[in-house]
Design a protein around this nucleic acid. Structure first.
Ligand SMILES: [Mn+2]
Ligand SMILES: [Mn+2]
Ligand SMILES: [Zn+2]
Ligand SMILES: [Zn+2]
Lengths: 147, 147
DNA sequence: AGATTATTGCAAATTTGTTGCAATTATTAT
DNA sequence: ATAATAATTGCAACAAATTTGCAATAATCT
């Protein structure tokens, strides 16, 4: 049992669910990987788990905070929650596609505050910024910047 | 022709697409409204446009920056871009799926500043916060909130 | 107006997600 | 460790969402 598997087991038990080989397999397919689509996840199980079960497992994982869905355009990808990876946000370069992580406590505080002002209880959030990195800012034409 | 319709027409022509009654209808169903699901949009056309065409129109609108998809849970809603509505962000209720617009200049400044510190030129960004609205916060149990 | 090209509707296909139920597996209690 | 109990899975069918080819129609261009 890895450390991560132990955390998973505890989370499942604490919520009254059992530890099954299928749940462990799905979890291990997600750990350490880039966010993946449902299709990719299903593919990677190589027919070892039924499609319906995978949907049920991800539904459960979402519910008890093991996974979360990351929205990409009008599709979504699945990734493990911050319990299993460091919470962070990104600056993405529209030209060279470099991804620069942001990790600002200020930002977190600001967002939390922003929500609570309206009687809202914030649970999760996303911040993504697209633009041009230092390098590409120099090369990109004014026309392109003005769109 | 309304002002908004003129902007739409120009955008279509500038990208080499024609102005059709279907495209105008879809556009007018979106203008001034809350973000809506594809299902809602289809419903509101009252059978006047085929489902396939609506998908094609929204696909095109997305491509040329007339609409954008707002992710709600693992579904999405469609809304007009900032060209047709004030730039804003959202608080989304995880329970009743209510969408509350945020409109804070502070937030914009904060984000711009966050990016520029690193020599980055920000062009676009998204901020989405999920949680429970004032109403649902009361009903949702402490257990559920603590997850 | 007539020719040309783009868009639409229709019908069918595909892809994505859900459900009931019997078989299997995990947990709990001897 | 075994049997009883309860939860989970696989299967097969279903339902919803999205995509596609193609002929009919509508928009644009000359
Ligand atoms: Mn954050
Ligand atoms: Mn903003
Ligand atoms: Zn770059
Ligand atoms: Zn609510």
């Amino acid at each position: 049992m890895t450390t991560a598997e132990n955390i998973l087991s505890t989370l499942l038990k604490d919520h009254g669910y059992s530890i099954t080989s299928q749940r462990l397999l799905v979890f291990n397919l997600l750990i350490g990987q880039e966010p993946m689509t449902m299709h990719e996840l299903i593919d990677r199980t190589n027919g070892k788990i039924d499609r319906a079960s995978i949907y049920r497992i991800i539904g459960l994982f979402d519910q008890i905070g093991i996974t979360q869905r990351l929205n990409i355009g009008w599709k979504y990808k699945i990734e493990l929650t911050d319990k299993f990876a460091e919470h962070h946000h990104h600056l993405t370069c529209l030209n060279c596609h470099k991804v620069i992580p942001i990790n600002k406590n200020e930002l977190e505080d600001f967002i939390a505050q922003l929500a609570t002002v309206q009687g809202f209880t914030p649970i999760d959030h996303q911040v993504e910024i697209q633009g041009y990195c230092q390098n590409c800012s120099k090369k990109v034409t004014k026309a392109k910047l003005l769109n």
